[in-house]
Design a protein around this nucleic acid. Structure first.
Lengths: 150, 150
DNA sequence: TACACTAATAATAATCATTACTAATACTAA
DNA sequence: TTAGTATTAGTAATGATTATTATTAGTGTA
């Protein structure tokens, strides 16, 4: 953050990053906002959004796009994918599958696209939800909506 | 749609499905709404949303979740993935990569999750945008936002 | 064919996540 | 210390989606 003199290291910016890196739950902006508020009670949600956007453009945090849900953020910028529970919405880390690597040539040939990034989103049931699955969901005729975030 | 007596075949429902199946652009609800409006000028956007949700629960259409963007819909329910242009937002089809198949056992072992579905989201530049890439984007210091939908 | 039942609709309001705006504040360099 | 400007808090606006509600229209039965 210090290379560019136009981008300042403010208390808000520093603490937003610090708190995000400490969390391993891939929080949405409002969840991180609540954490940061414990240290900076007067911070506004807009500041959290603005800084997460900036930090992600600088490559210091990762935006984790969850389809059909809020954007989530990850303080771990190393290459990895995520796995999400369709029941409770929890998101966990998942190592990059080696079978996904080096398929950019194939993509190019098939579609004409230049591949920039690949994201694998695995939908499933987390260990906790698997336990509860048997009892409370007897015989649904149609699929349930994708579960809540918390 | 006829097995369940509680779910009726209305004009709106039928035409929404017909128009979606005809389109191969993975439209968002409002784009499909404009198409349907040519045949049913008094239909409301809420009706389109409501029926797309129902049809997807019945397995007759697929919701294509695009992270950080509107939900899109696909009349083709066969198993396949999508590739999206980060510049213009266009979404095209992509065959399921054989390397992604049968990794549910590995997922289970690594994370304890029961894998229900996997989605591969490839971000890249579509052929059209690749052409324009060289001229208008000289030297950005930070990454651009993900492009617009149209 | 008409009737009764209730699902579905159009129109609109409400909600939720996110972004934009603006006057006041606080880094930073001279 | 000051000037310049990036950043902030507070708030309004936006855009996508969902909820509400009175009315309309499928559907099974008489």
């Amino acid at each position: 953050m210090k290379e560019n003199p136009d981008i300042r290291v403010t208390k808000q910016r520093r603490i937003i990053l610090e708190e995000l890196v400490k969390m391993h739950t891939h929080p949405a902006a409002d969840e991180l906002y609540e954490k940061v508020r414990k240290r900076l009670p007067r911070i506004s949600l807009g500041t959290v959004y603005r800084n997460l956007e900036l930090l992600s453009r600088l490559g210091m945090v990762r935006k984790v796009g969850v389809s059909g849900s809020q954007m989530r953020f990850d303080g771990d910028t190393s290459p990895h994918n995520h796995i999400r529970c369709i029941r409770c919405g929890r998101v966990d880390d998942l190592d990059v599958d080696h079978r996904m690597k080096d398929c950019s040539r194939e993509i190019r040939r098939k579609t004409g696209y230049e591949m920039i990034e690949s994201r694998v989103e695995i939908l499933g049931l987390c260990p906790d939800c698997r336990k509860n699955e048997r009892q409370d969901s007897g015989n649904r005729r149609i699929a349930p909506k994708i579960g809540p975030r918390r």
